[in-house]
């Protein structure tokens, strides 16, 4: 196969960026998109150019490091797939592919296709945990948890924190990410203890980071590589309303 690439190149966070065009010749349809970038980089290094910087690690769709917008769609238009698992067999010979970094104010570009996603870590630090210390935990079977609850919790907990939801949203909203964690923990008895505190704190951290608001377009669920659905966002909205009501009236 032969593909043309238009890739966003930006030397550093403060530098101006622009698109450069590269040719990927004789690539195999069995390669992943990132393996093709590896090959392009090999050629660039050999010819004295500067290789394209991009994030990736596990290359099996679970670490959440890879973050490339492919022809306008984060991780590419194949459903439930990260960029590292997007194989070239889904492109046509001779295609031109545009590669851009995640675009959001809270995700500044570090270099080329690499962005800084610390904002996600800060949101988790604000409350995305169960406040238990090591040791002293009761037996894992002490509280039976309905299978349906665990399954729904896991449907949300599969989030890999890649940020594609933010990248896809026209408002650069992080609702799907935040709601996944809020839903996961609020569905389990262990996490329910501090559910009000958690949702208020995480929403505040999300807003402070500068993400946009949700306008329910559904782009986030369309690109989520783990197929998390926006009903988690409804659940978070519910949790939020509940937390405010409880804070205001029950206490």
């Amino acid at each position: 196969m032969h593909l043309s690439l238009r890739v966003w190149r930006q030397k550093s966070a403060s530098a101006f960026g622009r698109f450069e065009t590269y040719e990927a010749r004789n690539v195999s349809a069995d390669m992943s998109l990132l393996e093709m970038l590896d090959e392009v980089n090999e050629d660039l290094i050999a010819s004295g150019g500067e290789p394209i910087a991009f994030d990736s690690d596990c290359r099996e769709g679970i670490c959440g490091a890879c973050s490339v917008v492919i022809d306008g769609v984060p991780h590419g238009s194949r459903h439930g797939t990260t960029a590292c698992q997007l194989h070239l067999r889904h492109f046509k010979d001779g295609d031109t592919i545009t590669l851009e970094p995640w675009r959001a104010r809270p995700f500044p570009v570090i270099k080329d296709l690499v962005v800084d996603r610390h904002a996600f870590d800060r949101i988790i630090q604000a409350g995305g945990y169960v406040s238990v210390k090591t040791g002293g935990a009761p037996d894992g079977n002490a509280i039976p948890i309905p299978k349906t609850d665990v399954d729904r919790a896991m449907d949300a907990a599969v989030c890999i924190g890649c940020g594609a939801c933010v990248a896809a949203c026209k408002n650069a909203s992080a609702m799907l990410f935040v709601a996944s964690k809020v839903s996961h923990l609020s569905l389990l008895p262990q996490g329910r203890v501090e559910r009000e505190r958690r949702v208020l704190a995480m929403v505040r951290a999300m807003d402070d980071a500068g993400f946009g608001a949700c306008t329910v377009t559904g782009s986030c669920e369309a690109v989520c590589p783990k197929n998390i659905r926006i009903d988690v966002i409804a659940r978070m909205n519910r949790e939020y309303g509940r937390a405010l009501l409880k804070a205001g009236f029950v206490e």
Partner: peptide, 9 residues
């Protein structure tokens, strides 16, 4: 037990 307490589903 520890992981269950942390909310591992």
């Amino acid at each position: 037990d520890q992981c269950v307490a942390q909310g591992v589903p």
